[in-house]
């Protein structure tokens, strides 16, 4: 069984959103994902990282840590912040719920992560931060004949 890992940490600036999703997609490329799977991964990463910036750090400075692991044909992604945390996690995960409607948030972030990945786990501690863990299986493509 082969395991490959990648870790990165970057500033909570919105310009890093595209950097983060491209980096994770590049790491995932070794699983030979389809275009659709790459878009799924990019969207999920974009949602998790954007949440750290807007909600976790409320647009102040902080560090975001992203850990990726490939194990067999599965991709594991963890996105972490040490921001304000989430007090009511159940409510936060409801589709369309947002605590920042004034910022034109749609409240669809967690719903997209759930839809585009096979598994989503969120743990959070108020005043300590939030950890988002996601898993996606990348189906093996049939050999070309």
């Amino acid at each position: 069984m082969e395991i490959q890992e990648m870790v990165m940490e970057f500033d909570s600036s919105s310009s890093n959103e595209s950097f983060a999703r491209v980096a994770v997609a590049a790491f995932a490329a070794r699983l030979d994902p389809t275009m659709e799977e790459i878009t799924d991964i990019k969207t999920a990463v974009s949602e998790a990282v954007t949440n750290c910036i807007i909600h976790g750090y409320e647009s102040t400075e902080g560090k975001i840590r992203v850990e990726c692991k490939i194990q067999n044909d599965e991709l594991f992604i963890t996105v972490m912040d040490r921001g304000c945390g989430i007090t009511d996690l159940e409510k936060a995960m409801e589709p369309l719920y947002t605590s920042k409607p004034e910022l034109e948030r749609s409240g669809m972030g967690f719903a997209f992560m759930e839809a585009f990945m096979d598994e989503l786990k969120v743990s959070s501690m108020p005043m300590a931060g939030t950890i988002v863990q996601m898993r996606k299986k990348i189906a093996k493509k049939p050999e070309m004949v």
Binding site: T50, T98, E104, R105, M108, G109
Partner: peptide
Amino acid sequence: TFMDSSGVGMIMG
């Protein structure tokens, strides 16, 4: 080529 939930929020606005 790419849009996430922030784009959705912008359109809703």
